[in-house]
Design a protein around this nucleic acid. Structure first.
Length: 1060
RNA sequence: GGGCGGUUAGCUCAGCGGUAGAGCACUACGUUGACAUCGUAGUGGCCACUGGUUCGAUCCCAGUACCGCCCACCA
């Protein structure tokens, strides 16, 4: 059956995928030679409900190239696939689905049902990622597909696996080593998902914002002399003030201020340091007073130099407040609405005031219960969102202060005011300027009118990377990994070179981050994830009485063990009957249970005798599990060992860990790579991978980030539909130069599709000429006598070396370039053309054998990058093919390079090029066959001609050769060791030929003058390396000869008496 | 503000001490025993700028400008 003109990727790809799968071709260890060393890659797990995007396509192409390459080389290969449960992202997807289906929300559903629903969703989308990766040709071992939540409680059948065990085990161990701790800290709070997130999940974005300036009156009407000086110390302003000026971008947080801070060196405020000032919000009768303190943090040159300190809602303020012992007053709830809980405002203020006056100190819990939000602001959102029709807390606060005359005023024409007034918060995606409320109405220009100073300015605002809402710093109890204590080995592993990061700039970034690492907040207030294995029970006070604060903690691997441990502990403390301790899933139920106990039962249990104790109607002592789940990155941080079965001592773990290479985007260097390094080293005391290959973000052809809103997203599956997976893969490989920006251009993909067609047609040509008949694949080339055959064998050997070298150095672009250049530039452009005349000659047999070998090598060496078209060709061109993906990778060296043949082919192709070029320049019709005259040639040229005459005549389209002087009206063809002439009397324009030769001569002379100049410089001769000098001499000789030949031709032309 | 990159043909990028390269695009010609998803020939570059090192710099060093990315951030 004759081959089609093009490769039908659409039909072939599924067929080949099935062929590979049926053969188990990608199983761990498939095609491994006896005694082979391991090569393992862990896939960066995509989100389980996700879809493959271009970044994945790129990333997985590179992994697959490496995997296929090593597998063909006979290494013991594992490419471990799997997916990530992706806490926030997946929970978001499912909640959205629920909303779309009009079903009850997550909270109404309850935790257990909701998690079951997420597992359903997982089942639904299961196979998506796999199918998409298979379309790309990814040769993962799907029989080992892993999932970061496998084996978790509630996991349905088919999700057995022990990844969950691994995660819990690590938590428990780290807990007991003190590497994980719980604490009340200021964390980044996402009010959309109502969870804490880590620093890395916060995006700082510049948005249009406003800065308000307010007066905080001094307590009791006190006043001071405010003196402002310029840089030279001259007094520029002196006035008596009974207030201090404060600037803020977040007026609503004023309610929680604990102090006003100034720099210790700031003379302006020295007179009032230590005094109290008034927060100008809330009912006048209950104004709160706060101290004016000194701290290094305020910048005297910025704003008024005085900063309000809101320890519970700002990271810098938190640090100041901690240093100064200023209480931290939380103002908002989990949705960033102003708190509605706790005592009324008046009562809360009274408590806060007595703290400020140092009349009493409060415990953390007591501070927590204080709600300083004025009653009329309670329940409002922190600021007005687009969907809010009414002013929220921020606007109300501003209005109150302004109405009271405590806004700092300025001339209406103050340029700082900007054109707009504060409106609803625009969110991060809004266009610049969209923060606009209404335009400021025209003002009198005489300078008399004064308006509140509200500066319009760009401010950096933190947004949740998934929710895109403004992050609120919140004071909450969270779990942290004490990263400072596990970071050193991770740093050391890279410093020492045990793990290598490429490109090297990645190492610098890695060091920089790890050397300045912050504690890692690992608890998330979500439901989908690994629930933290910690249980809380009632505490026991010094008198041995139970307390209601659930301050006892037990860390264990599951409910049963937690119960056992709790029993042990309570028995020790209170001689307690284990049957009476129960685990509750829900904190509030547990607390209620505890409240239900009669007051008597609380009293001094330890003192009770056992029998007395039993008389009490004591039903149960509740303990409950921490409702939070772990940060997704905590579990994916264990991906390398977790997928290999750890903590079980599996053979795969022994075989494939540490893994060979991690291929991933540099955007998750911190999120994932650094954490895997730290965790693997902390848990199993070994590096997770020997090499980390980092690549950039895939962008569109113009270098823009692909995004739905820009509409420039290129779907890899659509690309595969249109051009085939091989084209996309080749484009990906070709883009992958180290450290470059990745711009994906569909034009380029089309070009590589054409490359596949080119290869296809070269094979089709071979097939039509019976090249494959009786051919057996072998790594050593057949013996050849024809120069072209000897030459192409050497070219193949060079290419093979280049490909191996490039892949070993992760230079996928260079490997791709070498293959492209060989297949198209050497095989198709020259060798196939040479073969045509050779097939008619005495060397037809050897030529067929060599062509078969050369195409075999092309298929083998291209296979890692273009698996489909190469496998398809492999299958169609031989009777008993086996699988190309298991074909042995060649190892022959450059000893196959035949220098003699190479030199001769250079001469032959040079002559052909020169003739073609000359013909084109003097406009000889392509179809016209011309005579050729050897005007002058040496023995080598004669011999080369003799051996390759048929090839030259065919490709240069010339007739038989004659010897003799250049005929009148001929074109001169100077080549090494010979000058040829093409008789064109009457056909050519002598002037045009003269111009052509003149141009050629000028170029040669320009080159020559450079080299002569260098050779004439004694310092060059003295300092340059010997071979450089020799090379220059040789080059000069060649150029001189060429110049002479052209000169002679020109002279002949002139002698002919032409117009030139 | 700190860190890391980049600036080479119209475009996208290689190269990185001694002849400036590729692909695409462009121009002209072309149904030549596989391929028009093609062939042949060609046009196109003070290798960002300024200094320095060197016999010699696109390449090494310093500075400048512009462009990216990451981290931190002034209330």
């Amino acid at each position: 059956m004759p081959m089609e003109k093009t490769f039908d990727a659409k039909a072939a790809e599924p067929r080949l995928t099935a062929l590979w799968q049926a053969a188990g071709a990608f199983r761990a260890g498939a095609n491994a030679k006896p005694g082979a060393g391991p090569f393992s890659i862990m896939i960066p797990p995509p989100n389980v409900t996700g879809a493959l995007h271009m970044g994945h396509a790129f990333n997985n192409t590179l992994q697959d190239v490496l995997t296929r390459w090593h597998r063909m080389r006979g290494d013991d290969v594992l490419w471990q696939p799997g997916t990530d449960h992706a806490g926030i992202a997946t929970q978001m997807v499912v909640e959205r689905e629920l909303a779309k289906e009009g079903k009850v929300g997550r909270r109404e559903m309850g935790r257990e049902k909701f998690i079951a629903r997420v597992w359903e969703q997982k089942k639904k989308s299961r196979g998506n990622i796999r199918a998409q990766l298979e379309r790309l040709g990814a040769s993962c071992d799907w029989s080992r597909e892993a999932f970061t939540m496998s084996g978790a409680p509630g996991a349905p059948a088919g999700e057995e696996g022990n990844f969950h065990d691994a995660v819990i085990k690590v938590f428990v161990e780290m807990y007991h080593k003190g590497l994980i701790y719980r604490g009340k800290r200021l964390v980044n709070w996402d009010p959309q998902f109502e969870t804490a997130i880590s620093d890395l999940e916060v995006e700082q974005t510049e948005v249009d914002g406003f800065m308000w300036h307010f007066k905080y009156p001094l307590a009791g009407g006190a006043s001071y002399e405010y003196v402002e000086k310029d840089a030279d110390g001259n007094v520029v302003l002196r006035e008596t003030r009974d207030w201090i000026s404060i600037a803020t971008t977040r007026p609503e947080t004023m309610l929680g201020d604990g102090a006003v801070a100034v720099h210790p060196s700031d003379e302006r405020y020295a007179p009032i340091v230590g005094k109290l000032c008034e927060i100008p919000v809330g009912p006048k009768a209950h104004r709160r007073l706060i101290p004016i303190i000194v701290d290094e943090y305020p910048d005297p040159l910025f704003g008024s130099g005085a900063v309000k300190i809101t320890g519970a809602h700002d990271f810098n303020d938190y640090a100041v407040a901690s240093r100064a012992g200023i209480p931290l007053y939380r103002l908002m709830d989990t949705r960033a609405n102003m708190r509605t809980d706790g005592p009324r405002y008046a009562e809360s203020v009274a408590v806060a005031m007595s703290v400020a006056r140092k009349e009493c100190t409060l415990s953390e819990a007591e501070i927590e219960s204080v709600n300083l939000v004025p009653d009329e602001l309670r329940g409002l959102h922190r600021f007005r969102r687009p969907e809010d029709t009414e002013p929220q807390a921020r606007e109300r606060v501003v209005a109150q202060i302004t109405a009271e005359g405590l806004a700092v005023m300025t001339r209406a024409d103050d340029p700082r005011l900007g054109k707009t007034r504060p409106g609803p918060d625009p969110g991060p995606r809004a266009e610049p300027g969209a923060a606009a409320g209404e335009e400021v109405p025209g003002q009198a220009r005489d300078g008399v009118d004064l308006v509140p100073l509200v500066e319009a300015r760009k401010i950096m605002q933190p947004f949740g990377d998934r929710s895109k809402v403004v992050i609120e710093p919140m004071l909450t109890d969270q779990w942290f990994v004490d990263t400072a204590r596990i970071v050193q080995p991770a740093l050391e592993a890279v410093r020492s070179g045990r793990t290598k990061i490429i490109p090297p700039s990645g190492e610098k970034t890695y060091y920089h981050w790890l050397e300045n690492i912050e504690p890692w907040c690992i608890s998330r207030q979500l439901w989908w994830g690994h629930q933290i294995p910690v249980w809380y029970g009632p505490g026991v006070d010094e008198q041995g009485r139970f307390t209601r604060d659930f301050s006892f903690r037990f860390c264990a691997v599951n409910d049963e063990e937690a119960l056992e441990e709790a029993t042990r502990e309570y028995r020790r403390l209170a001689n307690f009957n284990p049957d009476e301790i129960q685990v509750f899933a829900d904190e509030s139920v547990a607390r209620q249970k505890l409240l239900d106990l009669r007051e008597a039962e609380w009293k001094d249990i330890r003192a009770q005798q056992r029998d007395e104790f039993e008389e009490l109607d004591w039903t149960v002592l509740p303990i409950y599990r921490d409702p939070d789940v772990l940060d997704t990155w905590f579990s994916s941080g264990l991906w390398p060992i977790g997928t290999l079965g750890w903590p079980e001592p599996t053979p795969e773990l022994a075989r494939y860990f540490p893994t060979s290479v991690l291929v991933t985007g540099q955007d998750i260097l911190f999120f994932w790579v650094a954490r895997m390094m730290m965790m693997q080293l902390a848990v199993v005391d070994d590096i997770p991978f020997r090499t980390v290959y980092l690549h950039g973000l895939v962008r569109d052809a113009k270098g823009k980030k692909m995004s739905k809103s820009l509409g420039n997203v290129i779907d890899p599956l659509e690309v595969i539909d249109e051009y085939g997976a091989d084209a996309l893969r080749f484009a990906n490989a070709a883009m992958a130069s180290l450290g470059g920006v990745l711009r994906l251009d569909t034009q380029r993909i089309a070009g590589y599709r054409n490359f596949g067609t080119k290869l296809w047609n070269a094979c089709r040509f071979a097939e039509m000429n019976g090249v494959w008949e009786g051919h057996a694949t072998r790594s050593e080339p057949p013996k050849a006598s024809a120069t072209a055959n000897r030459w192409i064998i050497g070219e193949a050997a060079r290419m093979r070396a280049e490909v191996d070298e490039a892949l070993a150095a992760f230079r996928f672009d260079q490997a791709a370039a070498a293959l492209y250049g060989f297949v198209w530039g050497k095989v198709c452009d020259w060798y196939v053309e040479f073969a045509k005349p050779l097939f008619d000659g005495p060397q037809a047999g050897e030529t067929r054998a060599v062509m078969a070998w050369v195409l075999d090598q092309s298929l083998i060496l291209l296979h890692p990058i273009m698996p489909f078209v190469t496998e398809a060709l492999w299958q169609t061109t031989r009777a008993d093919p086996g699988l190309l993906c298991h074909a042995p990778w060649p190892t022959y060296g450059e000893d196959l390079v035949d220098r003699e043949a190479e030199r001769e082919m250079r001469w032959v192709t040079g002559l052909i090029d020169a003739i073609r070029s000359a013909r084109a320049e003097v406009h000889v019709p392509v179809g016209l066959k011309l005579g050729l005259v050897a005007v002058d040639w040496d023995a080598a040229a004669k011999a080369a001609w003799g051996r390759n005459e048929a090839l030259i005549r065919r490709l240069a389209r010339v007739e038989a050769l004659t010897e003799g002087a250049a005929p009148k009206g001929s074109v001169a063809i100077p080549v090494e060791g010979a000058t040829f002439a093409i008789p064109l009397a009457g056909v050519i324009d002598i002037a045009a030929e003269a111009a052509r030769l003149q141009k050629a001569l000028e170029k040669v002379e320009k080159d020559l003058s450079g080299i002569r100049g260098r050779l004439a410089n004694p310092q060059f001769l003295a300092s340059a390396k010997e071979e450089v000098v020799d090379e220059a001499r040789a080059r000069a000789e060649t150029l001189e000869a060429e110049a002479a030949q052209i000169g002679a031709a020109l002279a002949r032309l002139r002698a002919m008496g032409g117009p030139g």
